[in-house]
């Protein structure tokens, strides 16, 4: 994963005629993203704003190159949409759709291993490179161009961190929401690697959640490979065990999956941590 891949270039929207798809296709275009086309089976020839609608990615590719796709189709069709993008060898797939069944994601994960595509999400807000491009639903008005890299499992909490930094005059180079599902396309480690390797990034903000163990992999990677300051907050310090909070990934199974245990491990491996976001933001100057 690198800046060239995430910068969008020729972007399409799958499910562009739906309520979310059309709204956000136009919002992305307004934020400077080069949205060249969209798909919606059976609606070829229509337009959303000035964006042409095609039946399929293959049909778009007959007319132009496709570098990235943002998926807004409902959950029952998300697997087919992702497979279509993988088969069409679209380099970057951002899946916003929430509620994709886990078995579908197991299938997608195995297909991705032998593909030319990188998936971000599902159940994620997408990516924004402030001032440059936006792939997804992160509110562009809250972003400020700068040198911080934010990577987060949460949606609205990503906006919260981004806007808190912007309000303090601290800008961002990348804001990446990797999504809250138990199985997803891009991990913390993938993003940390990008942020460490990009010389224009000088600080990293990592926002985790209860549930799963991906924050441990992130902490190990920070200890071994990251030389830049890392600021980390894991949300859900007061979550009861065994109760799902909001979405599928956020469920506290074992003690190891708790916010306290993850925070302690991140701190032990060199991250600056806090037990709430406001306190963490006050650490970043």
């Amino acid at each position: 994963m690198n800046e060239a891949l995430l910068s969008g270039k020729n972007v399409i929207v799958q499910g562009i005629t739906g309520a979310h798809g059309s709204f956000h296709a136009l919002a992305m275009a307004a934020a400077g993203t080069n949205v060249v086309a969209g798909t919606s089976p059976g609606k070829a020839g229509q337009t959303v704003g000035t964006i042409p609608v095609y039946d399929s990615i293959k049909a778009i590719q007959a007319d132009m190159r496709v570098d990235s796709t943002v998926i807004f189709v409902p959950a029952p069709f998300a697997k087919a949409a992702m497979l279509e993008a993988i088969d069409a060898e679209v380099p970057l797939i951002v899946c916003i759709t929430e509620g994709v069944p886990l078995h579908d994601m197991l299938h997608i994960s195995q297909r991705l291993q032998k593909s030319k595509s990188r998936l971000i999400g599902p159940n994620c807000p997408g990516i924004i490179l402030p001032g440059l491009t936006k792939l997804g639903i992160i509110p562009a008005a809250m972003a400020l161009p700068g040198t911080v890299g934010i990577v987060s499992r949460s949606g609205t909490l990503t906006y919260e961190a981004m806007s808190a930094l912007s309000a303090r005059g601290i800008g961002q180079k990348y804001v990446i929401g990797i999504g809250g599902d138990p199985v997803s396309g891009t991990s913390f480690v993938d993003c940390l690697e990008l942020l460490q390797n990009d010389a224009a990034v000088d600080r990293i903000v990592l926002i985790g959640e209860i549930g799963g163990t991906s924050e441990y992999d992130a902490a190990d990677f920070v200890a071994r490979h990251v030389t830049k300051p890392v600021f980390a907050y894991v949300t859900g310090h007061h979550a009861p065990a065994g109760v799902q909070l909001g979405h599928a990934g956020a469920i506290l199974g074992s003690e190891k999956e708790s916010a306290a245990a993850k925070t302690e491990y991140l701190a032990k491996n060199g991250a600056v941590t806090a037990t709430n976001l406001v306190a963490l933001m006050n650490e970043i100057t």
């Binding site: 949460s154 609205t156 919260e160 809250g180 209860i210 949300t235 859900g236 956020a250 976001l277």
Partner: peptide
């Protein structure tokens, strides 16, 4: 949002 809701509780 689940993340923001948990973060509010933490704060």
């Amino acid at each position: 949002g689940a993340g923001l809701a948990m973060a509010t509780v933490d704060a």
